[in-house]
Design a protein around this nucleic acid. Sequence first.
DNA 1: CGTAGTGTTGAGATCGATCAAGCGCTGTGG
DNA 2: CCACAGCGCTTGATCGATCTCAACACTACG
Lengths: 245, 245
Amino acid sequence: MSSTSSCLVTKLSHYVSLSQADCARLATLEKAERTFDAGHEVYQGGDENKDLYVVKHGWAFSYTDLPDGRRQIVKIHHPGDIIGFPDVALKHVTTTLRTVEDVCLCPFPKSSLDEILRESPKLSALLLSIALRDQVVLIDLLRAMGRMSAQERVSYMLLDLISRLRITNPGMTDTIRLPMTQSQIADYLGLTNVYISKTFIRMEEDGYIHRDQNRLQILREDAMIELTDFHDRYADMDTSWFPHD
Amino acid sequence: MSSTSSCLVTKLSHYVSLSQADCARLATLEKAERTFDAGHEVYQGGDENKDLYVVKHGWAFSYTDLPDGRRQIVKIHHPGDIIGFPDVALKHVTTTLRTVEDVCLCPFPKSSLDEILRESPKLSALLLSIALRDQVVLIDLLRAMGRMSAQERVSYMLLDLISRLRITNPGMTDTIRLPMTQSQIADYLGLTNVYISKTFIRMEEDGYIHRDQNRLQILREDAMIELTDFHDRYADMDTSWFPHD
DNA sequence: CGTAGTGTTGAGATCGATCAAGCGCTGTGG
DNA sequence: CCACAGCGCTTGATCGATCTCAACACTACG
């Protein structure tokens, strides 16, 4: 999470080496900057689809509500993520974006993508790959929601979070900062805050995790990987078919 | 589902008008053809990622199993769909592909995408949009799985199916052919075959649907749309930002 | 005519939800 | 410095939607 270079470039060049020109193209996406307080709603579902955002620092999440108030959080956003990408295909945004803590976002217009598609086949391939990889990640989450118990879902979430954070923080070990409340975790995993509490306590008693303030240490990562049949979708992508410059 | 022209071209030109050259590019994807019997596994999760497939006719689905046998169907494929697209980003496929009935598929190599990305910005934008739209669809399904009751999930599935089929069959009204078994529907919705049976019976008693053989008529579509807060993601896409030829 | 697959039905079990209370922070205002 | 409100987390009692298990009916098919 260096403050000097772009998180987006860091994240993307994990997968392919980018030309100067392509780095410059990405850098223009992060020219503008806006900060938001914790718990702020940046845009709401149904709004006209104007900008995308690159996360500079802080966590946020996207969610949808059912008419009666049931809430589903569909994506947790970290530094380097592009927010709002799926909605590019549609005229209106489908989710509401809410910050978890103080956050800095870089808005850029949808039309910037047009330029990338016309001028850089390699970046186009990379963006397409990211979109497709995110589909695989959603499918993994779907599997967890459809077929896993509460403890398995929590384990899956923790493994997914730590895998994502390791891409941009290679120094990370087994401890993550978890700024979300248990109600938010419940809305992400399709459970209730009460049951999240009970599940965390159970997992701590069983020696899977250790909690301290809002830091969480994963004690038995291998056991949790086995429990959830977890696959890291972030470390590797197949870039062999990409067009060359 | 015309047998003369390509389902893929039909489906894609629903969104933008395609040049001759682009139609030709898509047609080459459907040159080869292979047929499979009902209940056949075309490829398995973990296989090397070689080909994509365009569906010419028949239904199929992609699924993953947990080590203990719990199954999650993650996508139902119809004529005109591209199968295996999300796995393009990875070296190995993440799901197993199984036919529901007798099916005809057109395999084409991943590297064909390379050519499209280099030569047609417009088709690239369209493919990217399809991938992003499919993300939104997965998010909708995730919401259903995380926060909806059995009856709501079944309603959501039926509405989603009929919306998709209407794209390629504009003549469709309120009746669909449902060749999947109740066990498969259960594996798609994260429920059990027993409870699917009970839910269908309940919905029939309540006048939402009518069943006859493997045909299913939707009697109260508006009520079901309201119940599930359903949004059609297939009818419209935002193509205004696309590059011009 | 046996066998396998699919759907239905019923009894009982269970995981997670709901409801309600209490506890420990933290920030705020008197 | 204290009182108090608000929020997040925990705890316990009870409830209920869905699962599990088992039996049975129906169809297709070799």
